[in-house]
Each structure stands twice: as structure tokens, then as C-alpha cells.
Design a binder for these strands. Structure first.
Length: 519
RNA sequence: GCCCCGCUAGCUCAACUGGCAGAGCAACUGACUCUUAAUCAGUAGGUUCUAGGUUCGAUUCCUAGGCGGGGCACCA
């Protein structure tokens, strides 16, 4: 990793890097600047291919079978096949790949010799006429070429063979080391078009989420990521310090309490797409910083929000996938609403064969012990129910399922369930076993909210350092009056995982959090 | 934090029970003017993750550590 940052001690470079530096020096000696300032392509590779087909169909090709006007294309050299006095290459640009054909008698001796100084990975710009090779591939017959940037470090290109009959792409060698791919995402992206495609899809998904909410009359807002108090979720925060204010601050774990302050302020439909930060373990489903979409809609309850979520999922699926079913890691998942609804306590009661709400904390603990769930000493009723649910019910939630009406202890920001005060009006939407949405009829009674916060303070005093803090300013906001409001949080990364069939959250985050490689 | 698996050339991988560390691709030299995993001939390329230990001898066995992957826990 060190060569680029240390002064050139050529001795330390391995021979491949050394050779490329020598080519770089030769280019400069010949008066060629290997790091150009710009180039003006007339087409991206895809458009160039289309241009040829257009000319071909219109029967406008010259006698030599070429398009009359020259095109200019630029890209990174992916492959090179030299044949003495000619050569074929493929370059790749943002639009795909295109083949180049170099001939000594077209380019001239000097320009053809200069091709020796090119390597895989170099960026070049070329001009030339489009034609179709004997084997049928649209190709640029290069009349002039220019190096745009010298690659001094070999990219880990594999080779791809396309099966003529099935069109199947067979990968040879390649870059498959997970660690290398995450640490050097630039190299991963450079050699894996399919990885670039995942992130293109991610952008489309986020864009469709925005479009959907905008069309529903929501206003996109931005709230603080640096907060004097953290809240809106149960999680351990990242702690930092503001020097000038000499004050401890936290990176947000959720946007919730700020967005609801905006509802109090009369902004009756708001949303935010933001990074949240949680100081907890990493896993296939957890990255310390992740993207959350939250929205709040005045005058709605969680029933209304279930309907909105269904419409949102369908909107994105239609727009991005063009269908309402998908394959996730071998499972077929239908996105056709209405989604299944499952009351948490009913599902758990069925699994246990006993009425969950009638069980005492000790009885719940015994049930958990019977299923050899580990480390439950500190858990209260809410946590025990959550654990049991996670163990007994959650694994089955492959098809989209709204899990409803969580116990009050688990949901300090949710309104009590109408007619069942031990429960709250809350839902989580599970898909492919992942919790992707979480929503409430938002608690807007400031007195009840204070009681709930105080309950959390009790848990905190008992040693639960993830319990929520009492936010007096938020209570004050509620005292001014918050209309009935439905609010939803969505794990954007997980939703992207689902839609792009990626097994790990690291595969949908460009630069996932990793340990320090130095150790 | 715990368990399992992995770490060997730029990349992908071999190397029996502990016995000279190898191949394909990439690179380099040469041949080749419609190839596409181009082909053919040749050359070079290694701190076997790190530090100890056992041994005549360690990529291989042992101990500790690092990083990654998977699982569990934590957490959503």
C-alpha cells in the first residue's frame, strides 16, 4: 500500500510497477504527457455501437463498410490482443465497452510503435471510423489515439468468456478476495461492472423513494446529525466533543425526534434520507453508519402508514425492477400487496401455546430458558418477548409481513393500542427475514411521553445503557401540541440488498466500515 | 466478546504424512494485419499475514497476535 505515498524508491516497487513507471518516463521523454487534461468524445461506447447500426440499416456505409464520419471514444483499456502489425483492444466507458482495431498502415509507423507503451488499465481516447469485423462486432478502426492517463498499478482484471450459445458469461480468475474488494472498492468497481450496476440500482431506488414521497406531498428536510442528546431509537451512540462549545455531542442514532418537532411546527408531511450512526457490532445486516429514510405524516395513524408503505414498495418495484416479485438469495418474494399482517403477541402465543400477555416476567424467562436463549439476566418483559419472537417467529417472515402491535415496554415513542393499553400501535415490515420498516402511531401526549421516558430512565439506571434519554425539549415541543401523526423509518441499505439480491450490507455500501488494516 | 473457516507471485489458485514453493492469467522478449480467455516460443517475478516455538529441516505442526468471511452474542 505504501509505494504511491512514499518518495519514489524504485527499488521497493515490484517489477510490474517498475515497468509501468519506465513506460511513463519513456512517454515523457518522447514529449507525450501521459496524464492529459481533457478529451472530447463524440459518443459513449453504447451510443457509438448504435450509430453504426443506424448507418448500417440506412445503407449509408462506405464501400469499405465503414461509417463515413469519424467518432471519438474514450475509456479504460480492458483487453489487448496484438497481432504484429495490428491489434485489437476493448475499452470500457460509462456506457459499456467497445472494440478498437489498430493497424500499422492506418496509424503510421510511429503511432503504431507508441502503442507498446500502453498497458491494461490505461485510459485512452481514440478517433476512427466504425465498421463491423468479420466476426460481427462493431469496432472502431482507429486513425488516431492519445493516452489520457497512465495506469501505474495493474488492476486485478479477470477474463470473461461469453458462451456463444447461451450468452453466459464465464469468469476466469478475477478479483474475488472480499477484503480487497471492500478495502479497494475503486478496484472492485473498475473490474466488476456488476458491482457498478448494484450502485446504479441503489441510486435509482433512492431516487424513486424521493419521487414517491414528493408526489405524496412530503417535504424533504435536513435535521442535525450532531446532537446534544440522542434519541428516537434504542442504540449506543458515537460520542464526540465540540471544542468551541466545550460540550459533548452525539452522532444521531435516528432522526425521529427532530422530524416530529417539525410536525409540531406545522410542517405536516416531512421526510429525511440521512446517515444514522450506531456504535454497535458489525454484521451482514449492520454497518455502524447506515442510511435511514424516515417520514412523518400528520393526521395519519399506523394503519394509514401500512397502506402507504405498500404503495411505496410497489412503486419502487415497478419503477426499478419492472415487476412485483424478486429473487432474494434463492427465495422468491412477492411484493404484491396487501402484505400479510401478524399480531406480534398472537404469533408468539401460538408458538408458545400460551397467552403471552398473561405470562409474568419470570414465566417468560422460563420459556426463554427452555429454548436455551443465552444471557437474559438483564432482560425485562419487553426484551424477553422480543427475544422469543426473534427466535420462534422471525425466521419464517420471508414474504412481506407486517408484525403488529408491539408491547408497550418495547416502544416508548408509540401510542397505546386502542382498547389494548398494554400494546402499542406499531408495525415492523419484514421481508426476506430482514426488518426493513418500523412505524408507529406517534405518541403525542406529552404527559404519557414523559412517563415513558422516565420508564426508560429507570432501565438506564438498572444498567441498560441503550435505554432512551429524557429529552425535555422534545417534551416541550409536544406540549405545544402535535397533531395525530403516523411515522415510518426505513432501512434503505437493507431495502437495496433485497432489490439487488446482495447477501451483505457491505455489498450495497460503497465504502463499508472495516477494521484498521494496520492492526 | 465467543466459535468455525481462510490468508502462498499483481490476480485466481496448487504444493501428499514436515523434505528444493508451482500453474493459469497479468508482465517482459520475440513471431504474427479481422482477433476476442487470440495463438506460438522463451524470460522474469515469492518477507508463504506477523512474532515466537518444536524440528536436521516449517507454507505444512504448536502458541500468541493481525485482517477478512460465516455464525452466535450485542444490536435492529
Amino acid at each position: 500500500m505504501s509505494p504511491p505515498s512514499t518518495p519514489d524508491s524504485m527499488d521497493d516497487l515490484n517489477y510490474v510497477l517498475r515497468q509501468r513507471r519506465e513506460k511513463l518516463r519513456t512517454l515523457r521523454e518522447e514529449g507525450v504527457e501521459p496524464f492529459a487534461y481533457n478529451f472530447a468524445p463524440t459518443h459513449r461506447s453504447e451510443a457509438a455501437t448504435e450509430r453504426f447500426q443506424e448507418a448500417e440499416e440506412a445503407e449509408e456505409l462506405t464501400d469499405a463498410g465503414q461509417v463515413a464520419e469519424e467518432v471519438a471514444v474514450a475509456g479504460r483499456i480492458l483487453s489487448w490482443r496484438g497481432h504484429g502489425k495490428s491489434a485489437f483492444a476493448h475499452i470500457e466507458d460509462g456506457g459499456g465497452t467497445i472494440q478498437l482495431y489498430f493497424r500499422k498502415n492506418v496509424l503510421g509507423d510511429d503511432a503504431f510503435e507508441a502503442l507498446d507503451l500502453l498497458d491494461l488499465g490505461d485510459w485512452i481516447g481514440v478517433r476512427g471510423h466504425l465498421f463491423r469485423t468479420r466476426t460481427g462486432e462493431v469496432t472502431v478502426q482507429v486513425s488516431a489515439s492519445q493516452i489520457l492517463s497512465k495506469s501505474l498499478r495493474p488492476l486485478p482484471f479477470g477474463k470473461v468468456e461469453e458462451d456463444e450459445e447461451t450468452g453466459e458469461r464465464i469468469h476466469h480468475s478475477g478479483f474475488s478476495d472480499q477484503e480487497g474488494r471492500y478495502r479497494q472498492r475503486y478496484a472492485d468497481l473498475a473490474v466488476h461492472p456488476e458491482v457498478r450496476e448494484v450502485f446504479r440500482t441503489r441510486a435509482r431506488i433512492v431516487s424513486e423513494l424521493r419521487r414517491f414521497l414528493d408526489d405524496e406531498g412530503f417535504l424533504e428536510v435536513e435535521t442535525p446529525a450532531l446532537q446534544p442528546l440522542y434519541g428516537g431509537a434504542t442504540a449506543r451512540p458515537f460520542v464526540t466533543h465540540h471544542e468551541a462549545l466545550d460540550r459533548r455531542m452525539y452522532l444521531r442514532i435516528a432522526d425521529e425526534l427532530y422530524l416530529k418537532r417539525l410536525i409540531v411546527g406545522g410542517m405536516d408531511r416531512v421526510y429525511e434520507i440521512a446517515k444514522d450512526f450506531r456504535n454497535e457490532g458489525l454484521s451482514r445486516f449492520h454497518n455502524p453508519e447506515f442510511t435511514m429514510l424516515e417520514w412523518y405524516q400528520a393526521f395519519s395513524d399506523y394503519e394509514d402508514q401500512m397502506e402507504l408503505v405498500e404503495r411505496m414498495v410497489v412503486h419502487v418495484a415497478d419503477a426499478v425492477l419492472g415487476r412485483r416479485a424478486l429473487e432474494y438469495q434463492g427465495e422468491t418474494i412477492s411484493l404484491d400487496p396487501p402484505f400479510r399482517r401478524l399480531r406480534l403477541v398472537d404469533a408468539l402465543s401460538d408458538a408458545l401455546g400460551r397467552e403471552v400477555l398473561d405470562l409474568s416476567e419470570d414465566e417468560l424467562r422460563d420459556e426463554a430458558k427452555d429454548r436455551s436463549l443465552p444471557e437474559l439476566s438483564g432482560a425485562g418483559r419487553g426484551k424477553l418477548i422480543d427475544k422469543l419472537f426473534g427466535e420462534l417467529v422471525e425466521p419464517d417472515l420471508v414474504q412481506p409481513t407486517f408484525v403488529l402491535d408491539h408491547p408497550r415496554e418495547l416502544s416508548p415513542l408509540a401510542k397505546p393500542k386502542r382498547g389494548e393499553p398494554r400494546l402499542t400501535e406499531r408495525f415492523e415490515l419484514y421481508m426476506a427475514g430482514m426488518e426493513i420498516f418500523n412505524a408507529f402511531s406517534e405518541l403525542n401526549d406529552p404527559l404519557d411521553q414523559r412517563d415513558r421516558f422516565e420508564g426508560q430512565m429507570g432501565l438506564r439506571a438498572a444498567g441498560d445503557d441503550e435505554a432512551q434519554q429524557l429529552d425535555e425539549d422534545y417534551i416541550r415541543a409536544l406540549e405545544y401540541g402535535m397533531p395525530p401523526t403516523g411515522g415510518v423509518g426505513m432501512g434503505v441499505d437493507r431495502f437495496v440488498m433485497l432489490l439487488t439480491d446482495q447477501p451483505s450490507i457491505r455489498d450495497v455500501i460503497l465504502f463499508p466500515t472495516l477494521r484498521d488494516p494496520e492492526g
